[in-house]
Design a protein around this nucleic acid. Structure first.
Lengths: 251, 251
DNA sequence: CGTATAGTTGATTAGTATCAACGCTAGTGG
DNA sequence: CCACTAGCGTTGATACTAATCAACTATACG
């Protein structure tokens, strides 16, 4: 159990004055995905209700069922979202990285637990304050909508993975996902950083730790990947991995 | 392959005149979930861009990857949404019933195929026309957002099912889902209508036809359900089914 | 230096999938 | 009117993937 509350890690809070000078962190805020389409003034208004924090690894941001009073945006780092069953079985709903948002909820309660994977910088927005901005800035509302839809499409893709793919296909898909994700962030597709543990990967793919480990080993023996060290992987044959991910893993 | 286009089943089209009298189908339109929160005038404007159709069973409304030009709302009947892999493996993303919407998409292409399970009445809205209404009616935008979020929460719940639940838990969850759904529609929770085939249920739960059939039989032997005939099930011990659904199925 | 944790590998088991046969119902056509 | 066929669902036998149980290594930590 993390002993600290979110606010113990709070770094700064922008002044609420909407007529003040552009905040010194506008560059950072602008990078945040759901600010990308906004005007300078709109970004400033958004920044005025924001609250920054640096969180350590394995920090629980909120738990499933908690009152959903804030929305979060990741500046740097990685976060996992998961659901638990009463006997401890866990399903990781998604891994999130720079620019991703989380914490939107229906009926006032978060639908999943959010926990940092590595040290992570986040922005926090109070739902109450964000709601009024959403009313005033239609583009913000539309952007949030688009992000929710993209999450939905991603979740549906993951349902196909969980319900119908083999272990090998699952792991290949996971690696390709991370590779694509890295490229979107302007990073190279191949020396891949894997900040999450094998247990996290297993709970994301609906497998056990052992099966994930074995499958990594198999892919390495096949020459598809390299495992230079813990927390890292090189994709040696991305085409083969993509083929596997799309369904050639049942022969 | 369905030989007919959607338009071959079109029944009527509301007049576009926003000053005309309330359309004779306002009752029907009002029932549609995403109209529920709207004013009479707003409903009329929505109705003016709507197009009704009666579709037969097993009718493909659209395919994954098709240009996403319309959003659909179910008046009566049932629809399944699914994704296919190249070798034919299928994952059903969701079963939809009266009041449910589908067809929202990102990047202009549908992310899944939509097919009727039974004869189904739907409303169709052109994205192009709906978009301008969304700009004019903030409540409509908010309602659509809320529905997308609800779909996201449902998808995440299903990810837990697919990744971590046993066959027995999956089937129990499925039955409880349908039962809750029936109650929301004002129907009794127990004599349950199962319009979808065993194959559909299997592809929804990430199982095979045989395992679904066997699991139904087991639940029947346990006294939890009754199977009076094809397409129907009675929930004899809903409490036990809910318990199973939440995770007591691994003993 | 001892301990804890993450990861890998091996042996065995178990839960579903696969393959196969059969019954039931509905629609078809003689 | 009744065989014939096709599709769906059930049941049984067997196979196989991935889980479980267990041992071991490597690394980090106090």
């Amino acid at each position: 159990m993390p002993p600290l509350d979110f606010d113990d890690h709070r770094i700064e809070r922008e002044p609420a004055d909407p007529n003040g000078p552009p905040c010194k962190n506008c560059d950072v805020v602008r990078e945040i995905a759901f600010c990308a389409a906004l005007s300078h003034d709109e970004v400033r208004r958004l920044a005025s209700i924001r609250c920054h924090a640096q969180l350590p690894a394995a920090f629980t941001v909120f738990r499933e069922g908690d009152l959903a009073d804030h929305v979060f945006s990741i500046s740097t780092g990685a976060v996992k979202l998961y659901k638990l069953m009463s006997d401890g079985r866990r399903q990781i709903i998604g891994f999130l990285f720079s620019g991703d948002m989380f914490g939107l909820a229906v009926d006032g309660g978060y639908a999943y637990t959010a926990e940092t994977v590595s040290p992570t910088q986040v922005c926090r927005f109070a739902h109450r304050k964000l709601d009024s901005l959403r009313d005033e800035i239609p583009r913000l509302e539309k952007k949030l909508f688009a992000m929710a839809l993209k999450d939905l499409v991603t979740a549906q893709e993951q349902m196909l993975l969980l319900g119908r793919k083999t272990a090998k296909e699952k792991v290949a898909t996971f690696l390709v996902q991370l590779s694509c994700r890295a490229q979107i962030q302007g990073l190279p597709p191949s020396p891949l950083s894997l900040p999450m543990s094998r247990a996290d990967i297993a709970d994301y793919l609906g497998l056990t730790i052992e099966t994930v480990s074995r499958t990594f080993t198999h892919l390495k023996r096949d020459g598809a990947i390299g495992l230079p060290g813990p927390g890292h992987a090189t994709l040696l044959d991305i085409a083969a991995l993509k083929e596997l991910a799309e369904g050639s893993g049942r022969g």
